[in-house]
Write a protein that binds this DNA or RNA. Sequence first.
DNA 1: TGTACATCAGTGAACGCGCGTTCACTGATGTAC
DNA 2: TGTACATCAGTGAACGCGCGTTCACTGATGTAC
Lengths: 207, 207
Amino acid sequence: MAKRGYHHGNLRQALVDAALDLIAERGPTGFTLTEAAKAAGVTPAAVYRHFEGREDLIAEAARQGYEIFADLMEYAYDSGRPSALTAFLATGRAYLAFARKYPGHYVAMFESGISVNRNPDLARVSARARSVLEEAARKLSQHIPPGKRPPATMVSAHIWAMSHGVVELFARSGPGTQAPFPPEDLLEAGIGIYLRGLGLIPPDDPT
Amino acid sequence: MAKRGYHHGNLRQALVDAALDLIAERGPTGFTLTEAAKAAGVTPAAVYRHFEGREDLIAEAARQGYEIFADLMEYAYDSGRPSALTAFLATGRAYLAFARKYPGHYVAMFESGISVNRNPDLARVSARARSVLEEAARKLSQHIPPGKRPPATMVSAHIWAMSHGVVELFARSGPGTQAPFPPEDLLEAGIGIYLRGLGLIPPDDPT
DNA sequence: TGTACATCAGTGAACGCGCGTTCACTGATGTAC
DNA sequence: TGTACATCAGTGAACGCGCGTTCACTGATGTAC
């Protein structure tokens, strides 16, 4: 990170980082190629040495986000084992933690309008992230009698949806949009109730 | 809607409608004051006879959305009575139906970045929409023994979050983003499981 | 170790574009008498 | 019923701006001999 002259040294990543900061601050709309270049101390034209254009830069930010996201979910899942239940709960918590800790990545991934099929790398890593949650749901589902067991992909979709909804509606500090509860508590309670509904937590267990 | 000369007749609403179409098609980013004016057959400058500017126009679109939304939720709630449960389920269905039928309004309300506290009218009508769901949750909660009853506002937040998450993740026809299940079924099942978790639906009732 | 040269990673000027907004204006409408 | 006039709701030209992108260029770096 030493100051450099004509050559930057690691401009590519510096641009991604600048873009992430901008996206986190102002949303995907507020982000501007020109401003990202300026933040990296470089002329806008220099960006084209490393990316095809504005969208390509956002896509790379999203890709890195999915990478971190998938790692985080995997780690959470592993550290929750051997119980399928605690592992599952850990992934739910990890989701929210990721959204909080990496807001720029989160927005790039889910709110920038970048299609996950934009390039093969992005598609692959996003599939990996998804599969962690689905695997957790699958393992968990095995504890439900087959007759009353919803498809594991559905369970994972439900959890994903609730997590995403909590992030979008209650974890953003929009001006005046008062959150009724801490998002972490809200999500934890919601997932708990849901899992009781699946018969995976006894009705009276306050976990 | 007859063709007019110099005077438009109902330009204000025509602009809102044009904005809604544009927002639905291209998202809040893609919407442009100039284009909305063109779609209404009018010069961009004419917009300023009716709105303070671009943001003000979006805010009005959102306001009308909340109005429709609140009405729809109220109607759904009423038509589901007297059972607190069926009334509640009806509001959940109404949420998704609204998102589907009024995509422009939905985006203006929830994805445009317009703060609900931008003006008093908007704040009031959005509070009304929220209160319908909260009232439904409150009535429903009364059937839960007080000791194990989560706050009604929390229940309504959970349902809101899951509904919103389903809309954002699975009800959009993003290119290549395959929905694993019809969003309606997904949400219905999710709410069902959640309500079982609250003890409001017997474990074996397949409703 | 020194020199020539290819390659790489930036610059800076310029472009065309569409945006939101302003302004003085004018055509259309409605109302008083 | 007709005329004068105030008010209203548009026009159209112009603005400054920042954007993404292109281009020929040049300074820095690395490598072959």
